[in-house]
Simulated assay, not measured.
Amino acid sequence: MHTHQTAPTHYIDANGIRFAYRRFGNPQGIPVVLNMHFTGTMDHWDPLVTDGLAQDREVILFNNAGVSSTSGEVPASVEEMAANAAHFIKALGLKQVDVLGFSLGGLVAQTLAIAEPALVRRLVLVGTGPRSGDVMASLTPEAVEVFTATYAHPDDLWLGVFFTPSEASQAAGRAFLKRFRLRSEGRDPEVNERVAPAQLAALAKWGAPQDTPFDYLAALRQPTLVINGDHDVIIYSINSWHLQQHIPNAQLLIYPDANHGSQYQYPERFVKHVSMFLTEQ
């Protein structure tokens, strides 16, 4: 059985796009499809998370349009990203999936679940927020500082994005970076220079102020698990509360001393919580 490290990259055509994806894990039950963060690829997932989830179910990783090894251009709207995700899942011949979305991927996951209620059974939203959420029309001041800083080692960027300044969190971050680079053969190429501007445009549209902005969440009827750290400076933690308060069937978990990458700081805890949620009757 393949793992995060050994799963080969496959390709499938849908909606004029050649999607790159990987499938691995326990083929029993409902597969879980993972949607990645801003400028991330399939290789930006933590192997402890993906392999942990794969013990109970099949895990499907993919790059959406224009990202890394997937063809096409990145859409400048979350709605188009979600439509592409639906085309990809249906092209695999899957009738029902669970969906996990992290950060930008969480916006895509929400939109996909509302647009395709028969396709999406359960939803996990990690480090993300609702339309017109608090400081979601642009990068937060903390995010600007992290993304524009200079680093001796490029991967050190993620220590500021995903982890708090505490000694314990930074130690967890350094451990994550080692896992993050374990796959060396068949690794996804980094995204090109067109990806970030298009994704930022989509984020700006999503975060733009609207009247009664959270009303759309009433249409999200799937059982939903919302997870975040208590000090997310990329998408402020309060936005996870907004999601839980306005999704009809949602529960919220907040991890201590954790930033945007709470699932990477507490991978075993995260896998346990998500697996319990996905196997509930």
Rank of each mutant, 00 (worst) to 15 (best):
Q5D: 05
A7Q: 00
D13F: 12
N15F: 03
R22G: 01
R22L: 06
P27E: 14
Q28R: 06
V32Q: 07
M36D: 07
F38H: 11
M42V: 03
W45K: 00
W45L: 05
L48M: 10
V49T: 08
G52V: 10
L53R: 10
Q55P: 06
R57N: 05
N63A: 06
N63L: 12
V67S: 02
S68A: 04
S68W: 00
T70L: 10
T70I: 07
E73Q: 14
V78P: 04
V78F: 01
E80M: 14
M81H: 04
A82C: 08
A83I: 11
H87V: 02
G93E: 11
G93M: 05
L94K: 12
V97N: 02
V99K: 02
F102K: 01
S103R: 05
G106D: 04
A109Y: 01
A109N: 03
Q110I: 04
T111G: 08
R122E: 13
L125I: 13
G127E: 08
G127Q: 07
G127N: 08
T128E: 13
S132R: 14
D134F: 15
V135C: 06
A137Y: 04
S138M: 14
E142N: 09
E145W: 01
V146H: 03
F147R: 07
T150G: 04
A152Q: 14
V161Y: 00
P165M: 01
E167C: 00
A168V: 06
Q170V: 07
A172G: 11
A175Y: 10
G186L: 00
D188M: 13
P189N: 03
E190V: 07
E193D: 15
V195Y: 05
A196G: 02
L200F: 06
A201E: 12
L203P: 04
L203Q: 04
A208K: 09
T212P: 07
F214S: 08
D215F: 10
A218L: 10
L220G: 02
R221E: 10
P223Q: 03
L225E: 04
I227V: 15
N228D: 15
Y236N: 11
Y236P: 03
I238R: 15
N239Q: 06
W241G: 12
H242M: 13
Q251P: 09
L253P: 03
P256L: 02
H260N: 02
H260G: 05
K272N: 11
V274R: 00
F277S: 05
L278A: 01
